[in-house]
Amino acid sequence: MRTDFPDEGQLVASLVAGDRKAFEMLYRRLNAPMVRMCMGLIRNRATAEEVVQDTWVAVLRSIGGFEGRSSLSGWIFAILVNKARTRAQRDGRTISFDGDGDDDSLSAAFDGRGRWKNMPDLWDEMTAERIIAGRSVMEHVNAAIDALPAAQRSVLILRSQQGMEATEVARVLEISEGNVRVLLHRARLAVRKALDALA
């Protein structure tokens, strides 16, 4: 499920050698999450796709200099964030990952003594079978991710989908690890709320 690369060294060597198959594999794994994250930063699909395309060109141009100090995907997402920042600046905007959304979807869920006002539902329908039976749950999850503020969306994609450690996510987004945890908490609660509406 998580998109780590089993033999990253081999993959990088193939990319350096200009192996198209290796690039296609990498592209298929990362392009959609890159576009999804970039859309959160840029807010315009066509521009976001352009930024992602520029990122790929930059990745292939500089892959020979990749030293493995971060994971390959961490390195690629960091380039993406830089490209998005540059593009936003050119358009007179800035991208900030600090303090988006102060509240979470649980703030009203408890009484004065910290007990559930309404007991959470049992998600017995939210199972693998239902996912295989129809794509609706996945589409719902993706719509919920797309509705998140940029910072929460970025953290969720990098941490929960790309499987990066909190330290690496913090490095890619240039925020603190504590902030990564807070953003992940809020993002998961928001997606949970969207799923709860289906249950």
Partner: peptide, 20 residues
């Protein structure tokens, strides 16, 4: 629910990959 949310979030990425 939180555990399921995390699993479905990860699965959604896989769904993205297959369509691309």
């Amino acid at each position: 629910q939180i555990r399921t949310t995390d699993e479905l979030t990860a699965a959604a990425a896989l769904d993205d990959m297959m369509s691309e």
